[in-house]
Amino acid sequence: MTTTDERPTRVADPEFERKAERAEALRGFLQALPSYAYLVFFFAIPLVIVFVFSFASRSRTGRPVLSDWNLDSYAKLFQPIVAEIVARSLWLALLNTVLCLAIGYPFAYWLATRRSARYRAVLLVLVLIPFWSNFLVRTYAWRVLLGENGFVTEIGRALGLWDKLLFTQPAVFIGLLYGYLPFMVLPLYAALERMDWSLVEAARDLYASGWVAFRKVTLPLSKPGVIAGSILVFIPSLGAYVTPDILGGAKTTLLGNYIVRQFTAARNWPFGAALSFVVLVVMLIATIIYFRTDARTI
């Protein structure tokens, strides 16, 4: 035996491995950097500003003063008018979510069960078409439809259903339903489209009627879509500003409009800031609880 057997036995190097891992981490950070920067500048910092202003005091003319820090704005949250507006907003947002679900689910189901992929694509584009024009413009269009001589108003009159729509709560409600229905349909469609329909066949084979198979299999399996759609409809409905502002009247003030008014007409920035911040925190907590319970049941 001579030295022809000589082979390098230790090529692997822990130091090299660590370096590679560090390089990988750095690359990931750089990839995410633009998003990070955007979120910090346009989301985190403004949020901090809102938070700071909620403790500010006001000059006699209503200008916010960044001294004499206090909790007055938070105390004002307990006024009856706030409770009334919150209740109305919650009710409308909830009603809108439930109705979007009631209308959106059957439609998404029908859409997802079309055999032809081409047909499905066309229908999906039709759902998305409203997004091609500005939301504000579309809401103004509703003003025409719901106005004194508007198409929808005339139909209601002919059927004896209503006399006046514009600037009432039903008008706001119609506007919200119209505005947020696609946000319900899309996640529902996504959930139903990837459904394994042989599971429904299996349920039918195991003595379930069509309705029971839907309740026991299709519905639970489309739950992620139901949850995503509900959140996508409920949260913006609760904070809706444009729709109630354009279609609603004085008696239909919602949370969004009330907050805006604090920053404009009422000249009470600290109160507006406190209100915004509390709504944000409450919604965040509610969403987290919703997702947590869901993670356990699915």
């Binding site: 066949e201 039918r204 084979d205 003595y207 069509g210």
Partner: peptide, 20 residues
């Protein structure tokens, strides 16, 4: 007759087990 009214059961190709 609909499948739930037949005295037969099926073992599906992809098993079709209920994941939930």
């Amino acid at each position: 007759a609909p499948p739930n009214k037949r005295p037969v059961n099926t073992v599906f190709q992809s098993y079709a087990l209920f994941p939930h």
